[in-house]
């Protein structure tokens, strides 16, 4: 058991007068990968936007590696190695794959590792190497997701956040992508994953949080409860 790399302490956040997150508290990195699940529209994506600095929380602390980063700019959070792959794969439609990878290494902390990270990405997603000069808009959904994740790997992540990486992908592509994500995790980068595919989430994460109405309604730590498809489905759909 180690210290959590990220802990979210009593965060309240929302858009305008609408509060989405209500005093939410959770931590990540103590037991390995963290999976977030729960119905749509209950604050998972909003939580990730707060963590990566796209949305300023109204109150609460976001502690990454011992430092409160709540309210810091997205740029300085990236420079700390906390990298967020947003939902959907509408990255930069008119940039080439190579351009996206160069952008991923834009942050000063990532630049010295550009060469080594590019090799990692190419090894993980050989398909991307074949289409290095192709524009992102011409790629398939699965390939675009690979570009999104590859770009994040170029940013030299110390913690990687994936928001529904398999959303809308065909089953075969999904399996390939899941294998790649597992590979990243084995490479030593802890993950926080939001995912609707429960099988994948169970395989990937050691710790699970059910997010409901902007707060954690259930936390499952390793060894505490047996995790099974049935229980999770019943949490999803109520009793």
């Amino acid at each position: 058991m180690s210290n959590p790399i990220l802990s979210i302490e009593g965060v309240t956040a929302g858009y305008g007068r609408v509060t989405v997150l209500r005093d939410i508290t959770l931590e990540a990195g103590r037991f390995g990968n963290v999976g977030l699940f729960g119905p749509n529209g209950h604050g998972k994506t909003t939580l990730l936007r707060v963590v990566s600095g796209l949305l300023k929380p109204q109150s609460g602390r976001v502690v990454f590696d011992g430092v409160d980063i709540a309210g810091e700019s997205a740029r300085s959070i990236v420079a700390r190695g906390l990298i967020h792959v947003p939902q959907g794969n509408r990255l930069f439609p008119d940039l080439s794959i190579g351009d996206c990878m160069a952008l991923g290494a834009f942050s000063p902390h990532a630049r010295p590792h550009e060469e080594e990270n590019r090799e990692k990405v190419v090894k993980l997603f050989p398909k991307l190497a074949e289409r290095w000069r192709q524009k992102v808009r011409t790629l398939s959904g699965g390939e675009r997701q690979m570009v999104s994740i590859g770009t994040a790997l170029m940013s030299h992540p110390r913690l990687l956040i994936l928001d529904e990486p398999t959303l809308g992908l065909a089953p075969k592509i999904k399996d390939e992508l899941c294998a790649s994500v597992l590979e990243i995790s084995r490479g030593g980068v802890p993950l926080i994953v939001v995912e609707q595919d429960i099988e994948f989430l169970l395989e990937l994460s050691q710790q699970l949080y059910l997010i409901d109405h902007g707060a954690v309604s259930t936390e499952i730590k390793p060894g505490e409860k047996s995790l099974g498809h049935e229980e999770i489905m019943s949490m999803y759909f109520g009793h």
Binding site: L54, A74, P86
Partner: peptide
């Protein structure tokens, strides 16, 4: 993409 630009720093 402004959001994605923030997220690559």
């Amino acid at each position: 993409n402004e959001d994605a630009s923030h997220l690559v720093g």
